[in-house]
């Protein structure tokens, strides 16, 4: 009998530990595994290092105080360029930051995926990230003397991804125009949990889409969570667009502690089935 990797969000959280380094797939406010992020917010997990092309995943974990350190190339809500909760945390000095060039971040994940301690690149030379990350080193090529940044591997304890579809064995399908670096996060991680809009039978992957959309193989996944509206309020095209109205409410909730508490009570501290109904209504404009 082949493995059935289906889990719930709470099962995933039960596999996490204080102090872990967690990579979160997607990009900005696009296809983020928000239902798992919300489950982390409802847990007592703390002291986390988050590695992400960040959006509200990073912002919420900053707002909850559970992120101790964030490794990022940017943190943005896309249609709202600056992530207000992340911004507040940086300005208050409540998180440690490793700020990288966007290309370097995926390069560090690739190094981890290859189990090498660094990969060389030109990106970073001359920029402030060399000063702001004093542990970064350069390396001189043994072939022609080129001096390059030695981007250190960014190994992850866990990667969290959200896909459009997955099967129960843990293969994941991406139906939108970009799967971002989800496959690289998975390869850089000890363990990977994928949430998805719908768990389908393996033979149905290619019923309506090409085999090239099955981007993450079960070789790299440890659990599958069926999570309809699991990326909401970030977008999960073609299943649904970003919920811009709710994103605006989320951004406004960074105003003060009361505003965040009110947002959290309505949109975080709720059981998933209730959340899905709220999300569907909100996306439909009924709020």
């Amino acid at each position: 009998m082949s493995a059935d990797k289906r889990l719930t969000e709470d099962d995933v959280v039960a596999e996490l530990r204080d102090g872990m380094t967690i990579g979160i797939g997607g990009w900005g406010s696009r296809r983020k595994p928000m239902s798992i992020v919300r489950a982390i917010l409802r847990s007592s997990l703390s002291d986390l290092t988050i590695v992400s092309y960040g959006g509200p995943d990073v912002g919420m974990l900053c707002a909850s105080g559970q992120a101790r350190k964030v490794v990022y190339g940017f943190v943005s809500l896309d249609s709202i360029p600056l992530e207000p909760h992340f911004r507040a945390a940086r300005q208050a000095g409540t998180i440690e930051a490793m700020e990288l060039d966007e290309g370097m971040l995926q390069w560090g994940l690739r190094a981890a995926a290859m189990r090498v301690s660094f990969l060389p690149c030109r990106a970073g030379l001359g920029s402030a990230i060399m000063e702001n990350n004093p542990d970064l080193r350069t390396v001189v090529s043994p072939y022609d003397g080129q001096e390059l940044v030695a981007m250190p591997a960014l190994p992850l304890d866990v990667a969290l991804l959200h896909a459009n579809r997955a099967d129960r064995r843990g293969n994941a399908q991406y139906l939108g125009p970009d799967w971002y670096f989800d496959d690289v996060y998975a390869m850089a991680a000890e363990r990977t949990f994928v949430s998805c809009e719908r768990v389908i039978d393996t033979e149905d992957f290619t019923a309506h889409a090409s085999e090239q959309t099955i981007k993450v193989s079960r070789l790299w996944t440890d659990g599958v969570v069926e999570a309809p509206f699991g990326a909401h309020f970030t977008h999960c095209v073609p299943d649904y667009p970003r919920d811009e109205a709710l994103q605006r409410d989320y951004a406004a909730s960074a105003k003060d502690a009361d505003a965040w508490a009110a947002f959290r009570a309505r949109w975080v501290d709720v059981p998933e089935p209730d959340y899905r109904r709220l999300a569907e209504a909100s996306l439909g404009g009924a709020r």
């Binding site: 990022y72 190339g73 940017f74 943190v75 943005s76 360029p81 600056l82 992340f86 911004r87 940086r90 300005q91 000095g93 700020e99 990288l100 060039d101 966007e102 290309g103 370097m104 690149c121 030109r122 990106a123 970073g124 030379l125 001359g126 920029s127 402030a128 990230i129 702001n132």
Partner: peptide
């Protein structure tokens, strides 16, 4: 990326995004 000292910015902006890599490549 930010206004003020990077270690604790007065105003956190986007982060460096792709600017370091863009400009040397």
């Amino acid at each position: 990326a930010c206004i003020g000292p990077w270690a604790r910015p007065k105003v956190q902006l986007l982060g460096v995004r792709g600017a370091p890599g863009n400009t040397v490549n």
